[in-house]
């Protein structure tokens, strides 16, 4: 487990550095993807296989693809790349449609093959100061943790659990005892730490209300995303049919 953690941590750090240094947003997304995959390895080394698989499915699968999708939709260049002010309203003669065209021409003129090293964003001093001071605060908090935090305890085995509970339960896996509430038909038994079964007990026996509320949240988010990204906001005051003036639609 220690080796898996070390390798995953190193890969996660590499991905993070890629994310925060790359100017090209697609390369940065690649770095984020690497960091997410390595985080799944960290979860595995912490004996949380269900979380690791969820991490790969949700973050590396769904979120990364969504990011890539929107990157393809939008212009990923900023003022730093083009040397042109982009603040709308900063120039009275600003025309968004023309602006997009100009930027493209300029890009073609000094087009050079994208290299990983030439696309690095220079560090911003104030951001470095803030992030480093935050890291120092975190480090103090971690160093000040009680001594019990210098090792993970052993997970309970069936034997140790049986000794503790003073009874022999039917079954299966190692570890933690599931005790059904009064009136349920299930038998008490031991389940493995981090297994899907154990996580499901924590969801449906421990926090069922939070689980239901999160489903509502996701429903609202889907509705909101559809409404926000809709092309024609006909009948809604204050919005315009902006699809037509897009230069390369």
């Amino acid at each position: 487990m220690g080796l898996l953690f070390l390798v995953s941590a190193a890969v996660a750090l590499i991905g993070t550095v890629l994310l925060i240094t790359q100017k090209n947003a697609v390369y940065a997304l690649l770095g984020l993807l690497v960091a997410f995959g390595a985080s799944a390895g960290i979860f595995l080394s912490l004996e949380a296989p269900f979380i690791a698989v969820s991490q790969i499915l949700i973050y590396a699968g769904a979120l990364a693809v969504m990011f890539l999708f929107v990157l393809m939709f939008t212009d990923t260049r900023t003022e730093e790349d083009t040397g042109m002010p982009v603040a709308v309203g900063a120039r009275p003669d600003f025309d968004p449609a023309e602006h997009g065209k100009k930027k493209k021409k300029k890009k073609k003129k000094d087009a050079e093959p994208n290299k990983l090293l030439s696309g690095i964003v220079l560090p911003k001093p104030m951001a470095v100061v803030v992030a480093l001071s935050l890291l120092v605060c975190f480090s103090f908090a971690i160093i000040k943790l009680p001594g019990s935090y210098s090792r993970f305890g052993d997970l309970p085995t069936v034997q140790s659990a049986q000794v503790k509970d003073g009874e022999k339960l039917p079954n299966y896996d190692t570890g933690l005892k599931f005790t059904p509430e009064a009136g349920e038909t299930e038998q008490p038994r031991y389940v493995d730490y981090g297994s899907t079964e154990a996580v499901s007990y924590s969801i449906f026996e421990g926090f069922p209300l939070a689980f239901e509320v999160v489903s509502l949240l996701i429903f609202a988010a889907v509705l909101g995303a559809v409404l926000l990204a809709r092309r024609h906001l006909t009948g809604i005051p204050g919005t315009q049919d902006v699809g037509k003036e897009q230069p390369d639609a």
């Binding site: 969504m66 949240l217 609202a220 988010a221 409404l227 926000l228 990204a229």
Partner: peptide, 11 residues
Amino acid sequence: VAAAEVGIGLA
């Protein structure tokens, strides 16, 4: 929550 946030944010 992160998935919901990214959905709204990207929209």
